[in-house]
Simulated assay, not measured.
Amino acid sequence: MDAILKDFGTVLLWTLWFFIWIAALTVWIRCIFDLFGDTSLSGWAKAGWAILLVLLPWVGAVIYLVARGRSMNERQQAKVAELQAAQADYIKEVAGGPAAPVSPADQIASAKALLDAGTIDQSEFAALKAKALA
């Protein structure tokens, strides 16, 4: 019975270490992506942070989070807002948005242009004109 508990405890301990490792790796990768996505840092500053994050990955990630954690969040929020605005603009562009109402005179002029071009005949022109005036 003691061997079973010891094996179960070992499994739990390895599971705990696995999740700690994955969490630390996720934080490190997030720091790397934030570092190279930040346009306000100079090349030398990025190089210094990169060296710190590569040579001392876990300590470097903690230092990075302490030094630049607040600005990481601000940059992320700005990027999300920018993406939402771009998405809204795209949706408006694709949907066409509410079109300005076309006056009857414009509709008749458009139908007359189609008649002159030979696209429609006189009866179709008369039907479009009557619809515009209705």
Rank of each mutant, 00 (worst) to 15 (best):
K112S: 11
Q107Y: 11
L115T: 04
D106K: 03
G96D: 07
G96I: 00
S110P: 09
F125Q: 02
W58F: 14
A105Y: 05
G69I: 04
V94R: 10
L115F: 12
A88G: 05
E82I: 00
A78R: 12
Y64C: 07
I91V: 15
K79V: 07
K92E: 15
G118C: 01
E124P: 02
P101D: 01
R68G: 03
A99F: 08
L83R: 10
K112Y: 08
I63G: 11
V66Y: 03
L56C: 14
N73R: 08
P104S: 01
A67T: 08
D106H: 13
L115P: 11
E93A: 15
Q77N: 09
A86I: 04
V54I: 15
A126N: 14
K79N: 15
A105G: 04
I91F: 14
A113G: 01
A81V: 07
D106L: 00
V62M: 12
Q122F: 04
V59K: 00
A61Q: 07
L56K: 12
V102W: 00
A100L: 14
G97D: 03
V94T: 00
K79Q: 13
Q77Y: 03
Y90E: 15
W58V: 01
A113C: 11
A61K: 02
A95L: 00
Q77H: 11
I91N: 11
L114M: 09
L115N: 05
G118A: 02
Q107S: 13
